[in-house]
Each structure stands twice: as C-alpha cells, then as structure tokens.
Amino acid sequence: MFNKKNIEFLKRAIKHRSFIVGGSMTLLLIFCAFISLFWTPWDPIKQNLLIRHSPPSWEHLLGTDQFGRDIFSVIMAGSQNSISVGLVSVSIGIIFGVSIGLLASTKRGWVEELIMRLCDFMYAFPAILLAIMLVATIGQGSINAMVAIGIFSIPVFARLTRGAANAIWAREYILASRSAGKGLFRITIEHVLPNILSVIIVQATIQFALAILAEAALSFLGLGAQPPTPSWGRMLSEARSMIYLNPWLAVYPGIAIAISVLGLNLLGDGLRDLVDPRLARKR
C-alpha cells in the first residue's frame, strides 16, 4: 500500500493545486449530501407559507423560497440528487462502455469497426436532444433521466477504453503473456484492465460533472427529478417565475451546480496530470 511509488504519487498530489482545490470542493459536495441524509437545518420539503420569501437571516441563512422552505436546506438536500445522478449514470457508462471498449480492443476486425462507427454516430448526434426525447417518451423522473444520461456516456467510455487498451495490447509483455499461452480474457483482466484503470477514473470524474450538468438541464425542463424531491435544476426552473419578486432564488442553486461541476472538473484535470507524468512534465 505505502510502497515508494504510492508515496511519490501522494507527494506530487499534495503539491498539485487543481487536484487539491478540486478535491476539496468535491469532498464538500459529498459531505453535504451525506450530512443531509440525517440532518438539515430545516425540513427541505415541508412548506410554511407564513414565511414565504423571507430574506437571509441567522435562522434561514439564504432565506426562504415561495413555499417558505429554507433554501439552504433545500440546496443541501439537492446535493443528494446530483450525486446519485452522477453515480448511476457514470456507473452505467463505465459498465457498458468499458465492456464494449474492451470487446472492441480484444476482438478487433469488424467487431471493432462496427462498435467504433456506432460510437462516432452517437458523438455526431445531439446527445441532449436524444436524452430529452428518451425521457419524454419513457416518462419523466429521476431514474429515467439518470439512465438516459448514462446511455449517452457509454460511447465516451467505449472509445476511451478501446484506445487505451489497444495501446496496452501493443506492448511487449502482453505479447510475452500471449505466447506463454494465456487466454485473451485472462490477459484482459490481468494486464489490460489494471493498466487502463487510471484513464477511466479520470474520465469518470469529468463525466460525473457532465452528468450533473445534464441532469440539471433535464430537471430544469421538468423532465428530471419530480417534486417534492429537492433538485437544483428544478429549483432554478421554479425561480424563473419569481425572478422579479425574489431574484436570489435564481442565484443560489446555480452556485451549487457551478461549485460541484468546477470541483469535479478541477479534480479530473489534477488526476490527469498526476497519473500521466509525461504530460505534466511538458507543462
């Protein structure tokens, strides 16, 4: 665990600015979601029409919304939604995408060609448009939104995996294992997968951020999380009609989204530098 290589990695990680900043922001997001499972300052769902649109105070840090709910509490609870969307859709993307990518890289020939052309096709097609269509047809709701977003991250992982895996397959020691009589499947599990793991983790961080953005967009259009589940995207959509009355409603959830996405993006960039010292040195 604490061999020389890992310690070296940690040493560089501590010094890496965007890794540390992004990592802290991401931890903040996870922490928020975790705490909100047990406790929020106020109930994020219960309405209290007596205190609608109250300004920020010690009692309500960010004030209350049009139903008298504590905005800070709703935002805290909304982080659960964003995190679960990220987790589910990235998992879908990784499970299917990595398998498909490995398949393409192992089988080669027409299988690889077909898979890659399909991925190209998905790339050229406006993904969000399809996600909107898909959610609209199979029905609105968090789960469907997660699945739709997950489906569109499959080609991203498939392409990445195939490219990275092909590079591993070309290495000498793989050739040696093959000539030693190891099967394709075993080599894939023993040598290829561990070697491409870091690239996949980096991409997963970026896709997590994209999933949060996409879900917010779907929820904003009313196609994602349904009331009363707290969701940042829907908070913004509800704030639209209040924009003259209580403009701050339209500000806070956006900040929450931006911090989460920025944190994950920075973390991803930092990780990329750290796992690929060749690129880091070029800087």
Partner: peptide, 18 residues
C-alpha cells in the same frame, strides 16, 4: 474558461436576464 465550463447555460441565461 474553467469557470465557464462549469456554469450551466440555462443558469447563465437566468443571471443575464436578472
């Protein structure tokens, strides 16, 4: 630009309106 990437376009739209 890192900031620009992290902002949802519909939120920016709301801010611009605001």
């Amino acid at each position: 630009s890192q900031l620009g990437i992290s902002i949802p376009n519909f939120w920016l739209a709301l801010l611009l309106i605001l």
